[in-house]
Design a binder for these strands. Structure first.
Length: 1004
RNA sequence: GAGGGAAUGCCGGAGCGGUCAAACGGGGCAGACUCAAGAUCUGUUGGCUUAUGCCUACGGGGGUUCGAAUCCUCCUUCCCUCACCA
């Protein structure tokens, strides 16, 4: 047998395919099929086995579809922007652009050797400004729709490189280049896409997808939709109010006129505070300072627990009082504060000033204040502005608040200087409402502490003076730890000094600060029920916090009872079961406006800012006057400047002349945004660009995209289950909302190829030396053999360990096929061959359709074995070649030609199966013959006098069963029922055992 | 901790209620061709010493069934993903 020259056969056919452009796709009236493999990052090392596997899987499907008459789009491109090119630039001193420009042709060359059906006229590269221009265009659209925004968020920072690090550049909390340097957390202003606006649709549409269950589950987890209840807890801004003394200072006159305060008094007392003093203020509309001071100071001595609620002129009096006392009081809430006007007049924050009297108030207000002393004598001041306050010209409570370092609250909708609404607002000044998300409202009576995230933006307001030191100590400890290690931290916390109030029973609950609470999930604070949640339990044990049981069940020393059960110690809700309790408590809260049913998502907005060079520039110009101004559409693309320095911070910041550019709005000199976009933006829509890759006027032609999309089958690694596949779904939905496309899911059918490991079962890697180079293997065994082997070892989604002896088995097969013509002559088909052929056509078609390529290789081997052994015709062998073509395109072309065909086998026609030629033996899936066999078997097993046989089948199968023939065949009286037939005779309810294609049998 | 997947003969791996001692491939063994090896081809590959028979077998226990590798349940082991999500 002569040595086969695979290489020349392969080259010959690849050249001919390319020359005749048989794989170039054009829109036409035939049914379309869009097969896509995830495009690669073109690394300098070329393609590896995983790439080859991925492409071959897609190629087999594409070829199968071509043979079946589909107009197939099968494109390839390069995800060429990205960190590796930049890393190579830093480490090897090449420019990312050169690196990329060198890698891509090499990649294409290697891909071409695989004999793929790619339409190379459509190749695209994301590093091409003609491509990323449209990234920028989409960004502008996002901005327009308020889906792009800026906020500060944490990044990894290497103090030695003075630059931001990507997660993969952080190794064990250290910098990838400086192994001795701890990575720090830094907060930077960054750009985000509001993917959370689509969270619900992204979640709900998962069920429409024909994707691996696992991937769907991963997406569901990632989006993390959870139903629960949001409960408003009030938190005192003044720490524990139990020992606080509330003093009301109204404007003037005797306190009996202050009926207004009655409601407030009641509410404060309900929450455990004491209202102890509401003095009469003498003097009517012309009060004298001395008289008023006396009236107050003679009756009450201010102390560290005092909280004053002053209204209007009462505030003025209080400020005077604060000048006159020597203790520091706890709080001062200034309501309806008509002072002071124009703080700007104020003299360096230290002087006295005149308060210009209103005519009606006479001398009263002609006072001067020592503001520093006032500030010194109050721990916390809150300024509450009524909308009415601004009516007095020049009065500006907001400025007053700034001035006094006070918290400022606007009482919205309160137009009066003094009414019931004001009271509610005052209450909100003392007790702030925090909505808390929980999935277990049934345990609300068991809440014994709250935990707020240590990273919470409103944390400061919760920390009392007494606890400040400890809290600071705790927070400092956190900051020295890198983000990744936070995950391994032990749950720790510190008491904030504040208390929350349980809305169910007004119980006082301490608020802790914890390192384990996520700041941007829910409201960044959780209610802790130690008796029924393990994490809360551990925390409570550690810090000796009360544990209150509210569900019947067993607590141990180390375990909380976190299962469902009946409520106890829960007031009116005792004895209720889990589900009912949840509902009733939520209803109660909803009615009282203290809570509501909500849906919460784990999904966060997508941070697209990267402080790196080799990505799409964000088309924004920062202008001192106008802020962040988008680059107008005609200014796109914003092209990456080639002239930058690597290795010292963000390379883009090293090119001043690129950065400096006029503001599109006002024309003054502004600065370009130096952040680039996450490279996932490119892969989020590249599949659309393939439909119209060279369009320079538009992102793509709507018609072309409409013709080809959605992608019929998408193939790629499971590692993209979350990021890439969620982002492209998000982009698709967004572009559909812009009316650019007419579908909302990009990839209705998804397939993951498995991992190919080294022969030792370990991941292939250079350092382990267990890698197998696809090009070498193909050189040695031939491309078709390699393709055949790749799909014959295991189911494509499972992957396998590489084995050198394994490929020899495939090699034997392909060689036998190639040599077949030399050693055999054709005759008329034997029945056996015909049966096997038609069975194989039938089955293999299904296998190709469903990625059961392994089974296809098995049947093809069996068919070929038979063709070799038994008489078979030329037609049969040609059909066999057609069936084999998707896997082994070159050798089938070669033999096809040798047999005298002038056309390409690769775009000819798929054979049709003739079911009548399939012999009984091979018709395993035939329902009737199966039934007969089953009955005969059962009859044989069950000895006894049987007359009737009852069959139960799926409703749609009733008509398929031939009762007459079956009765005759088994010699019994056979009756058929649909499983859902209520009149069926089924004394032993066998019907439930039936399945599609599988009957249930009852004998009588 | 949550979610997903898997466990089959020497190995990889199919089968997913009756046709199962279990496809197909690798490997082993025997034979053919050869001085010999390789390549190729043929046969064989759980045990019982040969029977259209029995036994033991698809991770382990229990169950459903006339019948289980296949369905249910519990357990064990392994792999993957997200991991403090309230």
């Amino acid at each position: 047998m002569e040595e086969i020259n695979f290489a020349s056969i392969e080259k010959k056919w690849q050249d001919r395919w390319e020359e005749k452009k048989i794989f170039e796709a054009k829109e036409n009236k035939k049914g379309k099929y869009y097969v896509l493999e995830m495009f690669p990052y073109p690394s300098g090392t070329g393609i590896h086995m995983g790439h080859s596997f991925n492409y071959v899987l897609g190629d087999i499907l594409a070829r199968y579809k071509i043979l079946n008459g589909f107009n197939v789009l099968h494109p390839m491109g390069f995800d060429s922007l990205g960190l590796p090119a930049e890393n190579a630039a830093i480490k090897a001193g090449t420019h990312p652009e050169d690196y990329t420009n060198n890698s891509i042709p090499n990649f294409i060359l290697q891909q071409k050797t695989l004999g793929l059906t790619y339409d190379w006229s459509r190749v695209l590269s994301t590093a091409d400004p003609a491509f990323y221009k449209w990234d920028q265009w989409i960004f502008l659209k996002m901005l327009e729709k308020n889906l792009a925004y800026q906020k500060t968020s944490a990044v990894n920072w290497c103090p030695k490189c003075e630059t931001v690090l990507a997660n993969e550049q952080v190794v064990d909390g250290k910098c990838w280049r400086h192994e001795d340097t701890d990575v720090e957390i830094k907060h930077l202003k960054q750009w985000f896409f509001r993917i959370t606006d689509y969270a619900d649709e992204l979640y709900e549409d998962i069920k429409k997808l024909d994707w691996p269950d696992k991937t769907k589950a991963m997406q569901r987890n990632w989006i993390g939709k959870s139903h629960g209840t949001e409960i408003d807890f009030e938190i005192s801004k003044f720490g524990d109010i139990k020992d606080k003394e509330f003093v009301f200072l109204h404007a003037y006159g005797d306190n009996s006129k202050s009926v207004f305060w009655e409601w407030l008094k009641k509410e404060i007392e309900l929450r455990g505070g004491n209202v102890i003093f509401t003095p009469n203020l003498p003097g009517g509309k012309a009060p004298k300072l001395e008289e008023q001071l006396k009236a107050v100071l003679d009756n009450y001595s201010f102390n560290e627990n005092t909280i004053v609620i002053g209204h209007s002129l009462g505030n003025i009096l209080m400020m005077k009082i604060l000048e006159n006392i020597s203790t520091k009081i706890s709080g001062f809430i200034m309501v309806g504060s008509p002072l002071p006007r124009s703080i700007e007049e104020y003299d360096n924050g230290n002087a006295f000033r005149d308060f210009k009297p209103r005519p009606t108030l006479g001398k009263y207000c002609n006072w001067k204040f020592d503001y520093n002393k006032i500030k010194m004598n109050v721990k916390k001041i809150v300024v509450l502005e009524d909308e009415n306050d601004h009516i007095v010209p020049g009065n500006d409570p907001k400025k007053l608040a700034e001035f006094l370092n006070a918290e400022y609250i606007l009482s919205v909708g309160n137009k009066s200087h003094y009414n019931g609404k004001t009271e509610e607002s005052v209450l909100n000044c003392i007790f702030e409402k925090w909505p808390i998300f929980t999935t277990r409202p049934d345990t609300i009576f068991g809440v014994t502490f709250m935990v707020v995230s240590a990273q919470h933006p409103k944390l400061d307001g919760l920390v009392t003076d007494e606890q400040k030191k400890e809290v600071d100590k705790f927070l400092k400890k956190l900051k020295s730890v890198s983000e990744k290690e936070v995950g391994d931290l032990e749950k720790e916390g510190v008491f904030s000094g504040s208390y929350a109030i349980n809305p169910m029973n007004s119980e006082k609950i301490p608020v802790w600060i914890g390192n384990f609470v996520v700041a941007d999930y829910g409201s960044g604070m959780v209610m802790a029920v130690p008796a029924h949640d393990q994490r809360d339990f551990d925390f409570a044990k550690k810090y000796k916090i009360d544990i209150k049981k509210v569900i019947k069940g067993e607590l141990t020393d180390t375990r909380a009872f976190s299962e469902k059960g009946k409520l106890i110690n829960s007031g009116d809700f005792n004895e209720l079961e889990f589900e009912e309790a949840k509902k009733k408590i939520t209803d109660w809260l909803t009615k009282k406006k203290l809570g509501r049913k909500v849906v919460n998502f784990r999904l966060r907005d997508w941070g697209i800012s990267r402080q790196r060079y080799w990505g799409t520039p964000i088309p924004i110009i920062h202008c001192e006057a106008c802020g962040a101004v988008p680059v107008p559409e005609n200014g796109l693309p914003v092209i990456l400047p080639k002239d930058v320095k690597f290795g010292e911070g963000n390379p883009l910041e090293t090119n001043e002349s690129w950065i400096k550019t006029p503001c599109p709005k006002c024309g003054k000199m502004g600065r370009r945004e130096t952040d680039t976009m996450d490279t996932f933006v490119n892969s989020s829509w590249y599949f659309l660009r393939f439909c119209d890759p060279n369009n320079s006027k538009k992102i793509f032609s709507k018609e072309k995209v409409k013709y080809w999309n959605p992608v019929d089958t998408y193939i790629g690694g499971a590692e993209h289950a979350c990021m890439h596949l969620i982002y492209s779904r998000f982009y698709t939905k967004f572009l559909a909302d812009l009316n650019l496309i007419n579908f909302r899911e990009p990839f209705p059918r998804l397939y993951h190829q498995g991992m190919i490991n080294g022969n030792d079962g370990e991941k292939m890697s250079k350092s382990k030396g267990n890698g197998v180079e696809p090009l070498e293997i193909m050189k040695k065994y031939g491309v078709d053999t390699t393709r055949f082997f790749l799909v014959s070892v295991a189911a494509p989604d499972k992957g396998f360990n590489w084995s050198d002896s394994g490929i020899q088995g495939s090699s034997r097969f392909t060689k036998k096929v190639i040599n077949y013509l030399e050693n055999n002559s054709f005759e008329e088909d034997s029945k056996e061959v015909l049966s096997e052929l038609n069975k194989t056509i039938k089955n293999v078609s299904e296998y190709y359709e469903n990625f059961e390529y392994r089974k296809a290789t098995i049947e093809l081997r069996e068919l070929f074995d038979l063709i070799e052994k038994k008489e078979s015709s030329k037609e049969t062998f040609e059909k066999f070649l057609l069936l084999l073509n998707p896997i082994c395109p070159h050798l089938t072309e070669e033999l096809w030609e040798k047999m005298g065909n002038k056309n390409f086998i690769s775009n000819s026609n798929w054979p049709k199966a003739d079911a009548s030629k399939i012999s009984k033996k091979d018709k395993v899936s035939d329902l009737n013959s199966k039934i007969v066999k089953d009955i005969e078997y059962v009859l044989e097993k069950v000895k006894g006098d049987i007359k009737n046989v009852y069959l139960y089948v799926m409703p749609f199968e009733v008509e398929k069963v031939d009762t007459k023939k079956t009765s005759k065949a088994v010699g019994k009286n056979v009756k058929v029922f649909a499983v859902n037939d209520s009149k069926k005779y089924d004394p032993e309810s066998k019907a439930k055992k039936a399945k599609p294609g599988k009957v249930a049998i009852y004998l009588e």
